[in-house]
Design a protein around this nucleic acid. Sequence first.
DNA 1: CATATCACTTGATAATTATCAAGCATAAAT
DNA 2: ATTTATGCTTGATAATTATCAAGTGATATG
Lengths: 236, 236
Amino acid sequence: MRPSDVPDLRDLELFREMPGERFDELMRGAYVQTFPPMVDLITEGDMSDFLHVVLEGRVELFASWNGRETTIATVEPISTFILAATVKDAPYLMSARTLEKSRLILLPSSDVRKVFDADGAFARSVVSELSARYRAVVKNTKNLKLRSSIERLANYVVHQYEIGGQNPEFDLPIEKRKIASFLGMTPENLSRAIRGLRSYGVEFDAQHVTISDLDALRGLAKPSPLIDDADLPSVF
Amino acid sequence: MRPSDVPDLRDLELFREMPGERFDELMRGAYVQTFPPMVDLITEGDMSDFLHVVLEGRVELFASWNGRETTIATVEPISTFILAATVKDAPYLMSARTLEKSRLILLPSSDVRKVFDADGAFARSVVSELSARYRAVVKNTKNLKLRSSIERLANYVVHQYEIGGQNPEFDLPIEKRKIASFLGMTPENLSRAIRGLRSYGVEFDAQHVTISDLDALRGLAKPSPLIDDADLPSVF
DNA sequence: CATATCACTTGATAATTATCAAGCATAAAT
DNA sequence: ATTTATGCTTGATAATTATCAAGTGATATG
């Protein structure tokens, strides 16, 4: 375990309030590992062995049923995932794979639960993180159920614009096929939705997006803080 | 506050581990209220004033955007709702209304947060509840994104069959229009999906459902514990 | 009893979204 | 440079789902 990774972890809301000894105890069992792209990290249905933290790279969370697959989220540094399965000692609901070369810290789930049982401050941090994630998934549900695919795309574009410092030009952070899956549509349908946004002053050139009429786009997207704003600093 | 309500609350996983004095402290600020059917309890976007607990009756959680509305869940006794907004001190993401005459306990959010900050055991109980709810929403997302409407209905029927003690005849617990909204479809589409289930040996007579060919139904539904099983004793 | 209301159903049609197949462009591999 | 692979786009078509309008049946209301 590289000592330089520890400060990053310590800054996470999840571990910030924890007494130093507890944190060190957690770190003793932890290990850091670097994975190539497209490596399966966890498989849905398996029991939770480790709490995962992405230090570098990018990880996709996805789920499958009956031969179909859908992207639930992509996780970027520095952020944990599958916290709920870890504290519940329950099977993973999602699978995870690296999208690019990624460095992760793996904290044995049993250690996490041990600290969790002994340390009220940690328990409170977990609550904060879980609440935020819960709310993110509820927002995602509202997005899926209340909006059409072009409306979801429009809001995705507005959101990328916002988190990119309101620059009217930016690059898509992930492949279009992943965006399509995340937004709950096929790649073909995304392609057509992208063409549909031209009448709202949005041009796509491969990964590059240019917004020329923000008002028109906003008029279609009608973004709402109760659907589109993040409770979490990172992720989703 | 009726003293007979207290034991019910005390049995909730959320409050079970809590020291008696803390529990009493929480109860001092609480009050019980009975509401007629179809009363708006909370409105999405408002700040969290109270943690709500349903003692009797039934409450619908729903969300709106751009004139559209969708049912997220119905809450039955004895269960809390909007816990995440309460602990985060954040705006409600969903509105709530009574579906029938309902009795609720309202716990001031600030009291809940106070106890939460002081009591590690309570924080751990909150985590357990939140994790379960988080996982329920993730399952719901998988249901929405991976299944067609008739598949969602088929799984809904299988689920009702399971929680009703595997009796091949049972009654729908809520109005069909609510079921449609919960399953993410229009009432018309639900009507047609119901007809579509006839070829799988499921007959609907108003609210009454009869399953005559469970294998056929299961073959269509393909229920999965990673989508359809509950982490929570009640709700969803 | 008659009427009104409301959930539900059905039919006709439209909109949305998915599927299948082919073609294009870019980037990696030989 | 040519080939190969891959992601993306486009077209044609089909399936799914929504919308609008009308009708049915049950229950409630006057």
